[in-house]
């Protein structure tokens, strides 16, 4: 049986917990043993957040370490750069092209690196970048960036759309289901 290690990274408040829950659920349904690991509390307050989804026949460690992830799904491009060391050689970064300045950049104590994604690409990292914020707004809320990117990620797996949609229905609060399904579809279908 294959293994699959996915890291979901972003800024606290962008909904990485929901994205990891959704991915964990669908991979468990695919027959994998799944472990999903997350950190709550202090890191949620606009800080850098990371969750791990590990799938295999037998999964031990709940976390992903340097050079191990098949995919990094990044809700903000600086976060892709922060965690790229966890990507396996030949792995793929699925990322939002949005820039969110961290506080040291806002205060002028640090500089936001330029052309991050191009620089990573020249190092051999496969980059799949989309404007997830615009698509999320099209779906109805800036908060749906997470589902847009999960839609984009879904293209790498041979799992039919209906299964994803059913998993979204089972994971998301009823009043947000339609908006999230739309966001997922926009991410899955965008070129």
């Amino acid at each position: 049986m294959k293994t699959l290690d996915v890291m979901i990274v972003g800024v606290g408040g962008q909904g990485s917990l929901l994205a990891s829950k959704l991915l964990g659920k669908i991979m468990a349904e695919e027959g994998f043993e799944v472990k999903v690991s997350e950190v709550h509390g202090m890191s949620q307050r606009g800080g850098s957040v990371v969750t791990y989804v590990r799938c295999g026949e037998r999964v031990y460690s709940p976390i992903i370490d340097k050079g191990e992830a098949d995919f990094i799904v990044s809700f903000e491009k600086l976060e892709a750069a922060r965690y790229v060391s966890c990507l396996k050689v030949g792995g793929t970064v699925v990322t939002n092209s949005q820039q969110i300045d961290p506080m040291p950049v806002i205060t002028g104590a640090a500089v936001y690196p330029t052309d991050i994604l191009d620089k990573l690409q020249t190092k051999g990292v496969k980059i799949d970048a989309i404007d997830a914020l615009s698509l999320a707004l099209e779906a109805g809320s800036s908060k749906a960036v997470n589902l847009v990117l999960m839609g984009r990620l879904s293209n790498y797996f041979d799992i039919p759309t209906e299964k994803w949609m059913a998993a979204i229905e089972a994971t998301v609060a009823p009043k947000f289901v339609e908006m999230n399904k739309k966001a997922f579809a926009l991410g899955r279908d965008c070129r």
Partner: peptide
Amino acid sequence: DKDFVTLDEPVPVRPPV
């Protein structure tokens, strides 16, 4: 260690705020 890549320049920290 397993092989991995990094960005060649510093990545600004993103502390909780």
